[in-house]
Simulated scan of single mutants.
Amino acid sequence: MMKKWNGRWLGGQLRQWSVPVAMQLYHHSYSLDSQKVRMALEEKGIDYTSYHVNPLTGKNMNVDFFRMNPSAKLPVFQNGAHVIYRAIDIIQYIDRLAVHLSGEIPPVNTEVHQWMQKVDAWNPKMFTLTHTPAKYRVFVSKFKRRVLIARMADAPDLASMYHVKLREAYETEDKVKDPDIMKQSEEELSKLLDEVESQLSRTKYLAGDEFSPADSMLVPILARITLLGLDDEYINCRPKILEYYNLVKLRPSYKIAIGKYFSGWKKYRTLFKTSFFLCVRTLFRKY
């Protein structure tokens, strides 16, 4: 297999290793789980081929992608014949791969694994939807349902699986209107952040004094809170998390995976491009 040499700083030393160029990541800047994986990849210095799949415009429902991944969820990581769909599984795979390539045998850190599980247990979907203005949420939801119907016609053999996604879309709309579901999501997030605040009073990063995969999973959640304009309610009132968040935003991995798209005025550019695309496609009924 063709290899590419790559040198990155790890553990205070410049290490070189050969990385297969076959690794591919299907992702998008809007996908919180994609941000987690991209931060982990950048932290480990692993090269990969990037494929952007915008879920807001229904690109994750395109026939070719849907055949590969009927869940239509992002990200998807592929290394040769090995395909992984869940963010936490991808990040753990990346961590093992980096260890193998570097030739080191670090001690097992159960605390990192435990924090990864805690962060992964909170599902940001309902929190994001319930804090998105209704007119935008409804517009995008209607567009995506039309995309699903159009894809059923494009690929009759996949119609039953597309119908499952269509039913899920309607169920999600019903859940968003349920105040109890919204309250539960908010309470679960607050509980998680309270635990993080307590931990950060003892350590610099989430699982110790070194940035770890657990941090790659947590930081995008803080970025999502910021994107939704909820810093005062969830971040600024927790001084240790605020200090930690300001620290990790200086890391190159954050700037590449998140800051490039959502820092300052950039988030308006990112959102405008998608809004314009949706409006044009809706106007011409191109789904």
Rank of each mutant, 00 (worst) to 15 (best):
V53D: 03
M61A: 09
H163S: 14
L189Q: 00
Y48Q: 08
I90C: 07
L242K: 05
V19Y: 11
N60Y: 11
K73G: 03
G80C: 10
R145H: 08
D194L: 07
T110V: 12
S275D: 10
P220V: 02
Y51Q: 05
R86S: 01
Q13C: 10
A81K: 11
I181Y: 01
F272P: 00
F66E: 02
S185I: 07
R285L: 12
R145Q: 15
H113D: 13
L14G: 10
D64F: 09
M182C: 15
K177D: 13
M61V: 08
M126A: 09
K240Y: 13
Y51E: 04
K175H: 09
T49K: 07
N79G: 06
Y268S: 11
L10K: 15
I90W: 05
S185M: 04
N246S: 09
L74Q: 03
S263H: 14
R137G: 13
R151D: 07
Y162S: 10
E168W: 03
V83Q: 09
P75V: 01
H131G: 08
T226H: 07
V147F: 02
H100C: 00
K273L: 07
R224G: 11
Q117L: 15
L25T: 02
L56H: 01
A40D: 00
L271Y: 03
A223C: 12
K135M: 08
Y26G: 04
D231T: 10
Q117T: 12
V53N: 03
T110W: 14
N62P: 03
M126C: 04
E243K: 10
A153E: 12
K36H: 12
A159S: 15
Q117I: 10
L166K: 05
W265I: 08
S216M: 03
V63N: 09
D95P: 01
I149R: 12
A155Q: 05
F127W: 09
Y51M: 03
Y244N: 06
K165F: 00
L283Q: 08
E186T: 00
A223V: 12
M161D: 14
K3R: 13
V219Y: 01
V108A: 11
G12T: 13
V119A: 10
P220N: 04
K59T: 04
R151W: 06
